[in-house]
Structure formats: C-alpha cells, structure tokens
C-alpha cells in the first residue's frame, strides 16, 4: 500500500511555480465547495497574531517565579498549559524539560517538523531545514555555534527527537540578576529559540 511515485505524480499536474501551485489548489478546492477562503484567512491570522512563542514565554516565566507551578509543569505539562488555555493542535501531549548547569536540552524532529504549536506557534524556517534536522542529533554543539551559543565544557547536551505526538518545551535557565523581576519583565528575556534549546535566556 505504500504508493511510490514518479514523474506522473498527481502534483506534477499543478503549475511548477510554488505560489501558482498553491493558488491553483486553493481555487480548485474552493470551486468544489471543500474549503472556505475566509477560513484560510482565519487560520493564518491565528498563527500570525494570536498563537505564538509569547505563550511559551509566559509558561517559562511562571515556572521561574513559582516553585509549585514549576513542579506541576515538570510533572504534567499538558494539564498545566491546558489550564492557561494553551492546549490545541500539535500540543496535545506536552512535556517540559528543564535546563541545568549539568544538562542543556534541545528539541528537533528529524523525520518531519513536529513542534509545540500552541506554545511556540509555527516553527521557524531553520527548524524545518534539512541542516537542522540532519545535524542537531549528531553535533549539537556545532549547531549551537551557528546560533552564537557556547556551552560550558561540563554541560552535557540532551537532544529530544520528537518522533511521536509528544511535544517538548525547553525551560531555559533563569539568568543571574533577575531577582525581583515580574512575569512580564522576565518574558522579555525568553526567546522562542531559548525554548527550543538553540539559545539561552537573555541577560537583563
């Protein structure tokens, strides 16, 4: 039943220019009554403006501030982020992993592009690139160097390859000098990349 294709693949019937290819498919499906262009606008608006990495940053900031929240997040992240309204497509089974002096966590999907959408939005281009997918499991430090990050020599790296429907959120280490800062101020230090593991949280 696996269907192997060649040059007579159905997709080859569409225009070769990708923008025209998408337009042709959208037009066809709309004319057949199968998609609503207004629904497409709504999907795009959701991921451009409403669901993105600020959701994840709020979770991390709260974990830094509240030990009970942090413990609950590490115990059952799905339940905790659901309570904040961050449940949904591509985030049905969440696990949070915490960086320490001894261990730095990084997340990838070598087989496709699995990513925690409700917490981080649509993955960046580099996360979906062949280079990241191919390299990070074998040479995480060289990948970190591409992002300008150098880990202490005593820190081990644990790379999480998202091969199932479980999605991983990295809790970066809280930077020194952030004592007394509130949730919103801390959120500004927590980048998307720091929650994938290709960056550290910023210093204040």
């Amino acid at each position: 039943m696996p269907h192997d294709h060649s040059h007579d693949d159905p997709h080859a019937l569409l225009p070769s220019d990708p923008a025209l290819r998408v337009k042709a498919l959208e037009t066809l499906l709309t004319r057949k009554g199968l998609i609503d262009p207004a629904a497409l606008d709504e999907i795009i608006d959701t991921y451009e403006n409403r669901i993105g990495p600020r959701n994840g940053a709020r979770v991390v900031a709260r974990a830094w501030l509240d030990p009970a929240f942090r413990a609950a997040l590490l115990e059952d992240a799905t339940a905790v982020v659901s309570d904040l309204g961050f449940y949904g497509r591509q985030g049905e089974h969440m696990v949070a992993v915490e960086n320490t002096e001894a261990q730095h966590n990084m997340v990838v999907c070598t087989l496709c592009s699995c990513y925690p959408w409700p917490l981080l939005g649509i993955p960046p281009g580099w996360y979906k690139s062949d280079a990241y997918r191919a390299r990070v499991v074998r040479e995480p430090r060289k990948v970190l160097a591409d992002f300008g990050v150098t880990l202490p020599s005593e820190t081990a790296v644990r790379v999480w390859d998202s091969t199932a429907e479980v999605r991983y959120l990295v809790i970066p280490q809280r930077p020194a000098g952030t004592e007394g800062m509130g949730e919103e101020a801390l959120m500004a230090l927590i980048s998307r990349d720091s929650m994938i593991g290709t960056a550290l949280a910023s210093a204040p």
Binding site: R135, R138, F147, S191
Partner: peptide, 17 residues
Amino acid sequence: HDMGGRYGDGTITPEPE
C-alpha cells in the same frame, strides 16, 4: 525524509521571531 545524522547539509541560519 529520514535524515538524522546525515553529513553535508551546511550551516543553519537563525531568523527573527
């Protein structure tokens, strides 16, 4: 698609959030 560990893919380009 099964490319984990493959050699030869070059550098990664970070992008703004």
